[in-house]
């Protein structure tokens, strides 16, 4: 039995409940705890999607580092006890909720129709073509995967082909069905740290280096913002 729908509903419900709790609680500490629940549920969803590396980073960076920062500031400012959130005027709150519902309906409508007539649907249709030996399109797809993950044809032949067909076969001898399974296996592994690392340090090397500038800017900015003003020397 396929457990994905059950897990999706469980994690999805947990994420939504946590999200609503974040905006529902008066006490910011409780909101922060609810946010951690949401982050963990989302990490579960990432694992369901096969994105293991992203799930791990989600727990370490979001549920770990960022939430510690939040709780630290809440405690530093001693906001746990004071209620700074006076209730908003009814009309503003009502308008916000109505706008939110409209926004949600819009979002869900777009989401449900997202795969109709778009690039996503096209890929699905093309990969459904089968029968006979490996097609030129599948070979092209394999070449693309090979280039993206910087694999050699030998590696695919020795490591992945035996998983889907007889061990002595090479990519060119596969049938279309076997080739499809092979492509799916390779694509299913894209969440692995090794694959993400290869892509991150080849195709996205420059953006990766630029993120270090963002972090440096944030670091300097934070120090400049919260620096204690030094007492002026009296001369």
């Amino acid at each position: 039995m396929n457990a994905e729908p059950i897990l999706f509903i469980a994690f999805g419900a947990l994420a939504l409940i946590g999200a609503v709790a974040v905006i529902g609680f008066k006490n910011p500490v409780y909101s922060a705890i609810a946010l951690i629940v949401t982050f963990f549920a989302q990490a579960g969803l990432f694992i369901l999607l096969g994105a293991h590396f992203v799930a791990a980073v989600q727990v370490i960076v979001y549920a770990g580092a960022i939430m510690v920062l939040f709780l630290f500031v809440i405690m530093l400012l001693n906001l746990g006890s004071v209620d700074v959130d006076r209730p908003k005027a009814g009309i503003a709150k009502g308008a916000a909720v109505i706008l939110g519902i409209v926004f949600a309906l819009e979002g869900v409508y777009i989401a449900v129709n997202a795969s109709k007539g778009t690039a996503v649907a096209r890929v699905k249709r093309e990969s459904a073509v089968g029968g006979g030996s490996i097609s030129a399109m599948q070979l092209k797809e394999l070449n693309k995967i090979q280039a993206t993950y910087q694999l050699t044809r030998d590696e695919i032949d020795t490591e992945y082909v035996p998983k889907v067909a007889a061990a002595d076969k090479t990519v060119e001898d596969l049938t279309a069905d076997e080739a499809r399974t092979l492509i799916q296996t390779l694509q299913g592994e894209m969440g692995k740290t090794e694959r993400i690392g290869t892509v991150l340090f080849s195709k996205f090397l420059l953006p990766f280096e630029v993120t270090s500038l963002i972090l440096l800017a944030a670091l300097i900015g934070v120090i400049a913002l919260v620096k204690r003003e030094e007492p002026k020397e009296v001369s």
Binding site: G12, A15, V20, L45, A104
Partner: peptide, 9 residues
């Protein structure tokens, strides 16, 4: 759809 709902919240 779940992503849209979370965003809306």
């Amino acid at each position: 759809a779940l992503s849209a709902l979370l965003f809306t919240v």
